[in-house]
Design a protein around this nucleic acid. Structure first.
Lengths: 150, 150
DNA sequence: TATTGTTATACTCTATAACTATA
DNA sequence: TATAGTTATAGAGTATAACAATA
């Protein structure tokens, strides 16, 4: 391993740290998803699914192609976590609705992600608040919301 | 998703923010890698390559299987960015050495990652220092360095 | 016998293009 | 004609297992 790594580390700095945290969070997310029998994109879809949003909207929200959503929703639907419902106004559209079972799993998933996160282990409350504020700034223009439930 | 989204968002909090930053950084890394004609794992490998580390060590460092390294190094070697050199002490081992061309690209890559990062755009110096300190704590036990150059 | 690297193979994630039903 | 969703297909990322050479 090492050899004058302090010098190298300080050069790499923040961008390097963020990349590493990125990897660690990705692995964390993968592990937890797996505990629920979900692939990471399936878990992401479940987490982002609203009540009655068209698939198209989920695709935009997840930043992927609409064709990919088809398979994702197929898998979620096969496990009764999500349903496709017709839109009465436009018969091309299929509205995505989380089932009761899906909503339950989503909540358990949320808790597991929180509880087992490296965050919980290594930072105290004040530090977490600081970090949250900085990340929020970083994400500036990002818009979160999918169609929300009534 | 759950109506009354201010409540939901604040519950999601930090874990959610980190996941989003994770995605954004991942996209950023992908874009920049592409500018250099590298796939993200190729870029990661180049960034993590030292002077004379066995492939096995890179595999551990990248958290992937050794068999995957073969193809990665093939691609990098085909572009004269990296060389496989025999280890005089153990003829099973191939030492990975970054070429001059590879070192140059790695430095340019580093600069591009820094310059075009969302970090540069949205945070000032003090905020970056804060963020770095928090992330460092988060990464606690993580060990960074591969064999460094002499 | 254990270890380094390679090959063959397969699975997941994802996009592009062509298609259908509807608007 | 344009849009929502589907299907077929292909490519990138990655692991597992079997293997060769060396230790």
């Amino acid at each position: 391993m090492a050899g004058r790594s302090d010098q190298v580390d300080s050069e790499r700095g923040l961008e390097y740290l963020l990349l590493e945290v990125t990897r660690q969070m990705h692995d964390h997310f993968e592990r937890v998803s797996e505990q629920f029998g979900l692939t990471p994109p399936q878990a992401t879809a479940l987490r982002r699914m609203g009540c009655g949003a068209p698939q198209r909207e989920l695709a935009e929200h997840m930043g992927c192609d609409a064709s990919y959503i088809t398979g994702l929703v197929d898998a979620l639907e096969a496990r009764d976590l999500v349903e496709r419902q017709p839109d009465p106004k436009d018969r091309r559209i299929k509205q995505l609705v989380v089932t009761e079972k899906g909503a339950l799993m989503r909540e358990q998933l949320r808790r597991a992600l929180l509880a087992e996160s490296p965050l919980a282990t290594y930072l105290d409350q004040g530090e977490k608040r600081n970090l949250a504020a900085l990340l929020q700034k970083l994400l500036a223009g990002y818009t979160d919301s999918l169609s929300e439930c009534p």
